[in-house]
Design a protein around this nucleic acid. Structure first.
Length: 505
RNA sequence: GGCGCGGUACCCGAGUGGUAAGGGAGAGGUCUGCAAAACCUUUAUACGGGAGUUCGAUUCUCCCCCGCGCCUCCA
């Protein structure tokens, strides 16, 4: 079966055929960089990452553009409150986002764009809309006349008549001819950032940046546009209106929207105290790989219920997969090959690929790999597994991990490299790791705050050697003491046939 | 009120017009100096409620209840 996606525009699952195969041109709405991103944001970004990885896996040449909105009411308000320039303020949160992306193994898009770097392209697009009669001016601002665009509402399928009845009082201070009209260009206000342009002095409206930047890099019609479901209206609806009004061509062929994340069955909000950034979770000791796994495990069109129990379950699930890989790497098997087993592995690969082809059904893709895990373990335990089967099974895991990206146990290394964790000096009394959640919560210097202090690798290896020496001479009391000390320091030991293995709790 | 997503065992969550994946958790076992871990086996007659269509519905239709999102700048 071919690759299929649910397209918000048609309301159906459709076969995916890019305009110019094997090229795929994709635009994703990234962050508005006024604060640290929260896990709801990352639900969408992990979905987009799975999407881009699978497209590449399927052999497409991907050109993916992601935007960062670095000028809007909130960035302006917060930067002023912080007493820094808009640029400096948004730089900080862009850097923080890049760090988070590394922790979550989010691949970097081919192109990342910032709104304020593309004012000229927006101005040009607005001029086109004015020339074609889709825009009008009012008190220095420029608006899009929705009634002029016949297809308005085709994405969100909103009942515009119904909207009129329930229309809110327009909170904007600008004058519009119709409440449905939206602003393309906002007249400069005293004390706010603005740009001197042929349109006059002002700043862009929210939606115009995505039309201008996507078309600049991807062309007037491109393949995929995605974002959170809340963006369907008004953001993406307005993008369509602006873009198609300006070009007269279809703007985007496949619209993919991720459903929202909720926490413990409730919506996430700061007032409920269930609002988490990635660093909040890291400070609580949760591993980024587990967070990625949890966010990836629920297909993108289903609401995702985020719980700490779920995070724990995700961590356990990852361990199950890593353990198979450990066996495949370290355990001794008889020479030879088993074509039956190798076929089994290839079948699992096909099942997981087909699951992802089916609108990125990650839950089914997980089932496919776990079924293989079980069968591989059975074969090993029954002595049926052969040395020559190793590469096929490792390849199956690796292929799966090209999409899911959670098998490599490098959270500790990444957290250390990024400054979240400080290696502990090798004093026995300091074995217990210290956490400083208060400092973490302050949120200053995202990469410099010390969240946890952890025992260094060399120290752990030394103690394991000491313990094994004690075991050899039958001094189990000493051996057990070392094991429990390490456990208190967050290090778990496992004695396997191929030696002592350790991992972080 | 309108539009959309959802309500599956203790928890998280696939899926199907013919009685339901996978993971976690629980129990038993193997291994181990002991543990832990790992692995194996296993547990539970789970499909929000009602009506209808059908030989047969969890899967289709209608109504109702509940949760979540959007309805002008929120992923």
């Amino acid at each position: 079966m071919s690759l299929r996606f649910y397209n918000t525009l048609s309301g159906r699952v459709e076969e995916f055929h890019p305009l110019e195969p094997p090229k795929v041109r994709m635009y994703t709405c990234g962050l508005t960089v006024y604060d640290y991103a929260h896990i709801g944001n990352y639900r969408t970004f992990v979905f987009q990452d799975i999407l881009r990885r699978h497209l590449k896996y399927r052999g497409y040449e991907l050109l993916h553009v992601m935007n960062l909105t670095d000028v809007d009411d909130k960035t302006i308000r917060n930067s002023q409150a912080a007493g820094t320039s808009l640029r400096d303020y948004t730089d900080k949160y862009i850097k923080a986002f890049e760090v988070d992306a590394q922790l979550l193994n989010l691949e970097a898009p081919e192109i990342v764009v910032r709104a304020t770097d593309h004012i000229a392209a927006m101005v040009k697009l607005i001029e086109t809309l004015e020339a074609k009669g889709f825009a009008y001016r009012s008190e220095g601002s420029i608006y899009f006349r929705v009634s002029q665009f016949r297809d308005y509402g085709k994405l969100s399928k909103l009942d515009l008549e119904g909207m009129r009845a329930g229309a809110r009082v327009d909170s904007d201070e600008y004058d519009k001819a119709n409440v449905r009209d939206f602003v393309l260009w906002k007249a400069a206000k005293e004390g706010e950032p603005s740009w001197e342009t042929p349109l006059g002095r002002g700043r862009p409206g929210w939606h115009i940046e995505c039309s201008a930047m996507s078309m600049k890099y991807l062309g007037e019609t491109f393949d995929i546009h995605s974002g959170g479901s809340d963006l369907i209206f008004p953001h993406h609806e307005n993008e369509i209106a602006q873009s198609e009004a300006a070009t007269g061509k279809p703007f985007v062929r496949y619209w993919l929207h991720a459903e929202h994340l909720i926490v413990n069955g409730e919506k996430m909000s700061k007032s409920l105290g269930n609002f988490f950034t990635l660093r909040d979770l890291v400070a609580k000791g949760y591993k980024p790989a587990a967070i990625r796994y949890l966010l990836a495990s629920v297909p993108f069109r289903k609401p995702l219920n985020f719980t700490f129990d779920g995070l724990h379950q995700a961590q356990q699930s990852i361990e199950r997969l890593r353990n198979l890989r450990y066996r495949l790497t370290m355990e001794k098997f008889p020479a030879g090959e088993s074509s039956v087993l190798q076929d089994r592995a290839r079948t699992a690969v096909r099942e997981f690929e087909e699951a992802l082809d089916d609108n990125l059904n990650t839950a089914e893709a997980l089932a496919a790999i776990f079924n293989l895990v079980r069968d591989a373990n059975i074969a090993m335990d029954h002595g049926e597994f052969r040395d020559g089967d190793r590469p096929v099974f490792l390849d199956a895991l690796d292929r799966w991990d090209r999409i899911f990206a959670v098998l490599e146990d490098n959270d500790q290394a990444k957290l250390t490299k990024l400054g979240f964790i400080k290696p502990l000096a090798k004093t026995a009394g300091d074995l217990i790791p210290r956490q400083d959640e208060a400092k973490a919560a302050q949120g200053d210097g995202y990469t410099s705050a010390v969240l946890t202090e952890a025992l260094g690798e060399a120290e752990i290896e030394t103690r394991i050697a000491e313990r094994n020496a004690a075991r050899r001479r039958g001094d189990f009391a000493s051996a057990d003491k070392i094991r429990s000390d390490l456990l208190a320091a967050g290090v778990i030991l496992e004695d396997t046939k191929s030696g002592t293995r350790w991992k972080r709790k």
